[in-house]
């Protein structure tokens, strides 16, 4: 268990955004984080990344409390892909990917051979090598997310955290992006909205409601008519053995 939490909570302005979450992410697995808007998915990811500090409980990296690890050392282990991160600056693709080397470089050192190699490899893994000198502002949404994944890979992390990476992408690019995450074979936690995508690409699912875990397990165990009615307040028909042997969810109008 490289990444785990123990009864972790995050309270802001008296509101409990994340409420006593305990979870373990198995090495090399892709864990989907599900839940309606405002259920605490993004906040939990920020706690996992150490970008926010928990109000109580612990986030553990290889069993060590994240609070005791320097930010820079965390950034060499855990990389984050935010949803829709934007910039005003006139950067090219390679500039963005190069940001991933910041935690690896010392203050006065120029870019070294290992930095260049890591950037080149990251670009190759997301198949953007040819676009290295394209301006960020000319990229499509799907390309931008791939660049962010390349930047994350340039950090050479062991864990990858993605916050709704498929937001605003068309169906083709949604499938493409999650297939890429899958093929990276890294320990990953992905916040998702689409239940069918979650079933297709995740090994395990964790469902949040009001900041607390209400279900966790394989897609087959988690995605049931009852759970969807309870968490999302919609009526759904679940085919347990859908295409590819994973559950398939279809929604129906009307109250659950």
């Amino acid at each position: 268990m490289s990444l785990s939490t123990r009864d972790v909570s995050w309270v802001v302005g008296g509101r409990r955004i994340v409420d006593g979450v305990t979870l373990d992410v198995a090495d090399g697995s892709v864990v989907g984080l599900l839940g309606p808007n405002g259920s605490g998915k993004s906040s939990l990811l920020r706690l996992l990344a150490g970008v926010r500090s928990p109000s109580s409980g612990q986030v553990l990296l290889d069993g060590v409390d994240l609070a005791g690890i320097r930010r820079r050392d965390v950034a060499r282990r855990v990389a984050v892909v935010e949803q829709q991160a934007q910039t005003e600056l006139d950067l090219v693709v390679a500039d963005v990917v190069r940001l991933g080397r910041i935690p690896h470089r010392s203050t006065w050192a120029p870019e070294g051979e290992d930095d260049r190699a890591a950037v080149a490899e990251a670009l190759a893994r997301v198949e953007l090598t040819e676009m290295a000198s394209r301006s960020w502002h000319t990229l499509s949404g799907g390309e931008r997310q791939r660049v962010h994944i390349a930047r994350a890979l340039a950090q050479q992390p062991q864990e990858l955290l993605l916050d709704e990476p498929t937001n605003h992408l068309d169906v083709h690019h949604q499938l493409d992006l999650l297939d890429l995450v899958r093929r990276l074979r890294m320990t990953s936690v992905v916040a998702l909205h689409d239940l069918n995508l979650a079933a297709m690409f995740c090994d395990r699912l964790v469902v949040l409601k009001d900041g607390a875990v209400v279900a966790a397990g394989t897609p087959g165990e988690v995605l049931t008519t009852g759970l969807i009615a309870d968490v999302y307040r919609v009526r759904a028909v679940v085919t347990p053995e859908g295409p590819g042997g994973v559950p398939s969810v279809r929604f129906e109008p009307g109250p659950p």
């Binding site: 930010r71 820079r72 940001l99």
Partner: peptide, 21 residues
Amino acid sequence: ALAPALDAFAFGEDAASSLGI
């Protein structure tokens, strides 16, 4: 000396934080 940190702010403060700043 803080130039790399300033670079890291390109995509906002949370992004900078996740880059170890």
